[in-house]
Design a protein around this nucleic acid. Structure first.
Lengths: 350, 350
DNA sequence: CATCGCGTAGATACCGCTATCTGCGATGCT
DNA sequence: AGCATCGCAGATAGCGGTATCTACGCGATG
């Protein structure tokens, strides 16, 4: 007895072929549609497929053919609007390119990150997209270079999204956004509004994004001929609590700052809270601005003037670039940022 | 010349075997560790694997063996804290069970949902987890029953997470949370605080979650011997805008409500905004409560008293239940909800 | 001393699909 | 009419693993 479609087992190409009275190859061709099949044959096959409720086996296909039609997204944590929006961009673009999206999280654990990359090598994902700020150290660079090469050997492309590039000669694609430009524009906006004592709250040491933003902050000062008061650049982490604590400490020390540039919107939320607690009015007494433009920004009172980061587009580009590569196509892209004016910043009042 | 590990091609079991001077089966056994292999042989093999930087091919393994070690998560949209937290739970549990997590979004489009389920059938994911509120109609039930059976035939388990059950005899697992209980507890809390005119804002018609919450709202009234003023139950969608608009309309009509039970925290945000706009103080003049306990809730001013939904645990349970099934194991679970008291509700002032 | 059993390692047969080559009747061209 | 060509379908050979059955060396056993 030949191999039959026993009940309970999922039908295979061969089962469909038998039912349609053709060979398995013909069925494969009808599905792929990349080879001429006579219309009557085609419809017989389609009929059989429907009758059997046939579904191709993606794994068999991936094994026989070349491509897995899968991209992988690796992030610290899926909650948090920053990541969520990038994830949405990635997923959307992946879907529109007919790809499935694998999601992994590392919770900032390097060991887990390594394990995840290893797992994704097994999966032969077409692209592995690493998202999120990172310490820009030698260790980091080496690590990414290793990942890039390891993934490359396994046939996938490493994409660094919003992370520093590991340098040339590394088979990776980089999608960034203009941290410096955004910080420059925002600082310039405050300066143009008469502010001269602008505190920068939440410089997380060693983090690439921070460094770039501070660079923009400095350059704007320089271009406006205003000296930077180094004591106004305050370190801190990217949390609401840190924003509040740093603001408290600053105001305890001095109260001459007329504007606060928070490293992120989340930090800005903390700043606002601390200022409110001290009875400082925003924006009448002090202007406060942020960076990221997450939904929270427009929910704060007052609505936060901030730098818009195109998170979703970042995700889309990551997928697009990884999938369509070629000699003519750049493997590094920097997306623009721009300021969004809301209610938390106002001209300096004499 | 026998098949060699040509440079540029990923090494296979055979390559490792050749280098170690053993057969492919032996290598497979070393990796699987489910069969005795003599220690010297084992180390030769491990050595060869390291030298070649061998990585198994997950697709070949899935094809030959039975299991794909993959669970899939389908949601409307990855942004939005509600989904994000469920996603986190799913991803974490999946990871801890050694599974990878596929992420798909539908944007509420039924056609896309169908396509996604079809795609996941191809992937032979062990579990397909559908998340999010749904219209509890006959169409929905039929649809889910169809999905359940289709996926079952393809060897995956459908999990409905926070969605109504499609009824018995359908091969699906259901993970819900206690909407009615939460609404009951919250309403009882308000009643106990002296409130008698409690508006329910944001009853989205036909949505299962809504119906259950309103049921809890009614039952609490009944148990406290308070008649429900039907005119205080106001329809609306689960958005901030709707919350604000509905509140405006209600206050335009009458101002005797002393408390507002918003269908979700997001709606509550709108309610708060509208009340603030009218100069109504919360909680001094009117108490406002929500449902969900998303991070936003504690960020609002005043911090929102709300019903906590264990989103993350919901995700974890979905994976756990789908993966470990058996005669002794329930395929339907209802997680508890409880109220979280913050600052937006206060005892009625005479 | 023949036999048995045990511990290992190899051989072989798929899993379900696609790439490629072959086969063959119907056309087209001269 | 003769032969190359074309359109379509089948046969075959992997892709890279795992299950299963067989083979073999060696010490223990009767």
């Amino acid at each position: 007895m030949p191999r039959r479609s026993e009940p309970g087992k999922r039908p295979t190409l061969a089962d469909v072929a038998e039912r349609a009275g053709v060979s398995a190859m013909t069925v494969s061709r009808v599905i792929a549609g990349n080879y001429p099949v006579a219309p009557p044959t085609r419809s017989k096959v389609l009929r059989a497929m429907r009758d059997l409720d046939y579904v191709v086996n993606a794994h068999a296909r991936a094994l026989a053919g070349a491509t897995t039609k899968t991209v992988a997204l690796v992030l610290d944590d899926a909650t948090g609007p920053f990541f969520a929006f990038i994830a949405r961009g990635v997923e959307q673009q992946a879907a529109s390119e007919g790809r499935l999206c694998l999601l992994c999280t590392t919770h900032g654990d390097p060991e887990r990150e390594l394990a995840v990359v290893e797992l994704l090598r097994e999966q032969r994902a077409e692209a592995v997209i690493l998202v999120g700020g990172a310490q820009d150290t030698d260790t980091y660079t080496e690590r990414m270079a290793y990942f890039a090469r390891a993934l490359d050997k396994s046939g996938s492309r490493l994409v660094l999204c919003g992370r520093p590039s590991p340098g040339p000669d590394v088979p990776a694609t980089v999608v960034e956004y203009d941290n410096e430009g955004g910080a420059y524009a925002m600082t310039a906006y405050l300066l143009a509004n008469g502010h001269r004592k602008i505190a920068y709250v939440g410089r997380e040491p060693g983090l690439s994004t921070t460094d770039e933003r501070v660079r923009g902050y400095r350059r704007a000062h320089a271009d406006h001929g205003v000296a930077v008061d180094e004591a106004l650049i305050r370190p801190g982490t990217f949390t609401r609590e840190s924003g509040a604590a740093v603001t408290e400490a600053l105001w305890e020390e001095r109260t001459d700052a007329t504007a606060v540039f928070a490293a992120t919107d989340m930090v800005a939320a903390g700043v606002l809270k601390a200022l409110r607690g001290r009875g400082v009015r925003v924006p009448e007494d002090v202007s406060v601005v942020g960076f990221d433009d997450i939904p929270l920004a427009s929910d704060l009172t007052p609505a936060l003037t901030t730098v818009h980061v195109p998170h979703e587009q970042l995700g889309r580009e990551a997928v697009r670039l990884a999938l369509h590569r070629g000699p003519e196509i750049e493997d590094r892209v920097v997306l623009g940022t721009h300021i969004v004016v809301r209610d938390s910043a106002a001209p300096l009042r004499p």
